[in-house]
């Protein structure tokens, strides 16, 4: 195991050129870019969820008007939207990997992956509309 990480670009080049040509031993369809996105969203989520958790803990026991004012303030609107969009994307990618590993049968597999994606988009949009409505009134 090397002490220092290998250059990301060299890894990318090797993966794109080698894995796509692998026969029998495995398939690299679009898995590689999804693997990277999973890590990218994970890194982005670390500061976002820490901020969100600390905010929620500090607000525990606060009344409705305080919570509403917090959600509707400009910085919170931006950070909350980011947290939800990136968080749902990360969750969707993670559930997809679990489904791919444990659901046997291509029909069920595809159906479940599509269902997870639709659900994530639906609740993500609903949450964003809620945030915008709180922030801009109506």
């Amino acid at each position: 195991m090397p002490k220092r990480p290998i250059s990301a670009n060299a890894t990318a080049l090797r993966d794109e050129t080698m894995l796509r040509h692998v026969r029998q031993l495995g398939s690299a369809r679009d898995g590689l870019s999804e693997w990277r996105l999973q890590r990218l969203t994970a890194v982005a989520l670390i500061p976002l969820v820490v901020w969100f958790a600390v905010s929620l803990i500090m607000m525990s026991g606060a009344d409705y008007l305080i919570v509403r004012a917090w959600v509707g303030s400009p910085v919170v609107m931006v950070l909350l939207t980011l947290t939800i969009v990136i968080g749902l994307h990360h969750g969707q990618l993670g559930l997809q990997v679990v489904i791919e590993d444990y659901v046997h049968g291509d029909g069920w597999k595809l159906a479940l992956i599509v269902l997870v994606r639709f659900t994530a988009v639906f609740f993500g949009l609903a949450a964003i509309v809620a945030i915008l409505r709180i922030g801009f009134g109506g």
Partner: peptide, 16 residues
């Protein structure tokens, strides 16, 4: 947590 994120969305909708 993925299931919980749906509750989070629900909570935001209820605040709105």
């Amino acid at each position: 947590l993925a299931v919980g994120s749906i509750l989070l969305a629900w909570w935001l909708i209820s605040v709105a």
